[in-house]
């Protein structure tokens, strides 16, 4: 067993886990944070995306031990009470999700990216999403949602770029 101590969504969490425990299962099964999903097992689909020290990573391809001492943010911490994060709100207003399974990963990937580039073009957003697969939406409304969120987060008027 190895001891893992991680700040998750602002709370410090600690557990002894098998070394082989992947971060995603540490979050889902040890901590009960089931919002982060597993989709492909091969770090392709990005459903398991969380933030580690503020940057997007695929938690199915990281050991819990690798996150030891670091700061992890999951989808559960994005909304504040009843107020959704601007990215979540933009997904809602632009029909950026259908089945919702890839959605937490999409939101986290977008959150990481918009910190790096707050004023992306459509092409930028598409490239930023290359690590996140969606099978329902054809990405069109996801891209629209993220552009919309970028607008509202930077204080610019909301746009509905088609």
């Amino acid at each position: 067993m190895t001891n893992v101590s991680v700040t998750v969504n602002g709370q410090s969490r600690e557990a002894d886990v098998e070394p082989r425990t992947l971060l995603v299962y540490f979050l889902r099964e040890t901590l009960g944070l089931t919002g982060t999903n597993v989709g492909c097992d091969t770090s392709t689909c990005g459903s398991c995306t969380v933030l580690v020290d503020g940057e997007s990573v695929k938690s199915c391809t990281m050991l819990a031990a690798q996150a030891d001492g670091r700061d992890v943010t999951t989808i559960e911490a994005m909304a504040h009470g009843d107020t959704m994060h601007p990215i979540q709100d933009a997904f809602h207003r632009n029909h950026g999700l259908q089945c919702g399974y890839c959605t937490p990963g999409m939101v986290m990937a977008a959150a990481s990216y918009l910190q790096e580039n707050p004023t992306p073009t459509e092409e930028d957003v598409r490239e930023a999403l290359e690590g996140n697969l969606c099978r329902c939406t054809g990405y069109q409304n996801i891209v629209k949602s993220i552009l919309d969120a970028a607008g509202s987060m930077s204080g610019a008027p909301e746009t509905t770029r088609a």
Partner: peptide, 20 residues
């Protein structure tokens, strides 16, 4: 184009998928 009632829980990680 009524916005979806399904979205809130799915967007906040409260979806009730079987693996949860």
């Amino acid at each position: 184009p009524v916005l979806r009632k399904e979205d809130a829980k799915l967007l906040t990680g409260q979806g009730n998928f079987v693996d949860n």
